[in-house]
């Protein structure tokens, strides 16, 4: 057994299916295991099922069939409190950002830390640190609704990372970014990954795959198609 295989499982999907009415099969019999500390890029065409998979992982939707376990927690059996505790350990950067336009950038980021009852000092310093890293410090007190799409996207990423989560799920995190800011975001993700966080990034952007130790999972028509390591090649496992 390799060192990688000894690591605990962070995400475990077994034969998960999800159909949207009337008969759109978003996910079809998907099985996947991702271990703690892995960095996975989830690729595929629009409508392939990437966003559905992320929504199932953060328990916004529930699967029609199959089993999902995150950090040892079976989502189908989780109580409200268990689900809330789990969500505090997961940072999610949504495709539609889910920012509150009339709140400032700092307030938007603070939400993910406030619900974990972090101290004011921690919230302040973490917000400043992330905004500095993403070149947004000067926008800290600006309403999120006044920012450009690219800036909003970076705020959403900062919020996902702010509470130092064990798992970061990012849906098209660089879709509105230029090459330079994409690089900033990827450096941030990489830093978190090096500190032990597991990352699952759904993306179309081929330029961000090239990170050593990360791997690619491709989804086609709701099914897992290709899984391959990038760089040094940690391995995402799939079950038959």
């Amino acid at each position: 057994m390799s060192n990688e295989e000894k690591r605990p499982t962070m995400i475990d999907l077994a034969r998960v299916s999800k159909t949207f009415p009337p008969d759109t099969h978003a996910l079809d019999d998907v099985s996947l295991r991702i271990r703690q500390g892995e960095m996975i890029f989830l690729t595929g065409q629009s409508g392939a099922g990437k966003t559905t998979l992320l929504r199932l992982l953060c328990a916004i939707d529930i699967p029609d069939k199959g089993y999902i376990e995150i950090a040892g927690q079976d989502l189908s059996r989780a109580t409200d409190t268990e689900l809330q505790n789990l969500r505090r350990r997961i940072g999610v950067a949504y495709q539609d950002f889910k920012l509150l336009p009339d709140k400032t950038v700092a307030q938007n980021i603070a939400y993910s830390m406030e619900v974990s009852y972090r101290s004011r000092q921690f919230i302040r310093s973490q917000t400043e640190k992330l905004l500095t890293e993403l070149h947004l410090l000067d926008k800290m007190d600006a309403p999120a609704g006044c920012l450009s799409r690219g800036e909003q996207q970076r705020v959403a990423i900062a919020r996902a990372a702010a509470n130092e989560p064990e798992l970061i799920l990012a849906d098209e995190p660089t879709g509105n970014l230029d090459a330079e800011t994409t690089e900033l975001v990827m450096q941030l993700f990489h830093r978190y990954n090096e500190q032990g966080a597991t990352l699952l990034v759904a993306t179309h952007d081929h330029s961000i795959y090239d990170y050593p130790g990360s791997k690619i999972i491709k989804i086609e028509n709701g099914r897992l198609a290709i899984q391959k390591p990038v760089g040094t090649g940690r391995k995402a496992e799939t079950r038959a």
Binding site: C58, Q84, L100, K103, S112, V115
Partner: peptide, 15 residues
């Protein structure tokens, strides 16, 4: 929208 966000980031019922 704010309450929806609070739920997504894991706010407890009492929060």
């Amino acid at each position: 929208r704010e309450l929806e966000l609070l739920r997504l980031v894991g706010a407890s019922n009492s929060y």
